[in-house]
Simulated assay, not measured.
Amino acid sequence: MQITSINVGLPQIITYQGKELTTGIYKTPVSSSLFVSKIQMDGDGQADLTVHGGVDKAICVYPEEHYAYWESLRGHKLEAATFGENLTIRGLQEHEVHIGDTFAIDEVIVQVSQPRQPCHKLAKRMDWPEATLYVQETGYTGYYFRVLKEGFIAPDSKMKLVARDEAGVTVAFANHIKYHDKVNREAIKRVLTVDALSDSWKQSFRKRLAELEA
């Protein structure tokens, strides 16, 4: 596991197809250490707090390995933090990490809380209307960390696994049940055994399960 970039940015107003839009998806790599709180990194912010940010989505993570796929599909090189991620990480893709896994990044302790759900602002960021759907279909979504212990991190910070979640539900598995195998009741129940799963995803899966069992 290696952090290849730490990225932050405050919300800004952009114009897309003649309309103004406030978004926090534009992030810039930093070269110095910064403080990580329970809700965000210093210098970072989200525009719509009803669906972004908060304790369950304090840090957005995206695997560096996926960039080559998107660049080949789009036919050009992508800018750093194109997916609005705070951490670009190598060696920790969706099929390799479990919801509830805990990691130490120097003095900061983080825990995987849920897959990332791309919104329409990613499509606008990439000027690619189908971007959100493609991300969901591929499962190359990235994921979120909640912060269990605050502290400072830097671009050269070392990252190590502290504990694996005993349920063993990968981000990739949760994505598959969310977007593809939607009526698999046993799989939904398995996802719901993960105590560390974010409240919003628990509510979503509980609602779906209730509808299937009605």
Rank of each mutant, 00 (worst) to 15 (best):
M1K: 05
Q2M: 15
I3Q: 15
V8R: 07
G9W: 03
G9C: 06
G9I: 06
L10Q: 12
P11E: 07
Q12L: 06
I14P: 15
T15K: 13
T15A: 12
Q17R: 12
Q17M: 07
G18S: 14
K19A: 13
E20H: 12
T23Y: 15
G24H: 12
Y26I: 13
T28R: 07
S31M: 06
F35S: 01
V36G: 02
K38A: 13
I39L: 11
I39F: 08
Q40V: 11
Q40H: 14
M41V: 12
M41P: 11
D42S: 09
A47Q: 14
D48N: 15
L49T: 06
T50L: 07
V51Y: 00
G53W: 06
G53F: 06
V55Q: 13
V55K: 14
K57P: 04
A58E: 09
V61H: 15
Y62K: 12
E64H: 04
Y67L: 01
Y67C: 01
A68M: 06
A68K: 09
Y69C: 03
W70G: 02
S72Q: 10
R74D: 02
R74C: 01
L78D: 05
E79P: 00
A80I: 13
A81V: 05
T82H: 03
G84F: 15
I89S: 10
G91I: 08
Q93M: 07
H95G: 01
H95E: 07
H98Y: 11
G100M: 03
T102G: 02
V108D: 00
V108Q: 01
V110P: 05
S113I: 05
C119W: 00
K121I: 11
R125W: 08
R125P: 11
M126I: 13
A131Y: 09
A131M: 11
V135D: 12
V135Y: 11
Q136D: 05
Q136N: 07
Q136Y: 09
G139L: 09
Y140M: 14
T141A: 08
T141Q: 09
G142W: 09
Y143T: 08
Y143I: 10
F145I: 00
R146T: 06
R146D: 02
V147Q: 05
L148N: 03
E150H: 06
E150Q: 12
E150R: 07
F152E: 00
F152C: 02
I153N: 12
A154F: 00
P155V: 08
P155W: 09
M159N: 08
K160P: 10
K160N: 10
K160S: 13
V162I: 08
A163V: 01
R164D: 07
D165R: 00
D165E: 04
G168Y: 04
V169H: 01
F173K: 08
A174T: 06
I177W: 02
V183A: 10
K189W: 06
V191F: 08
L192V: 10
V194I: 00
D195V: 13
A196F: 03
L197P: 01
L197D: 01
D199A: 00
S200G: 03
S200T: 04
Q203D: 04
Q203V: 05
S204G: 07
F205Y: 03
L209S: 12
L212M: 14
E213W: 03
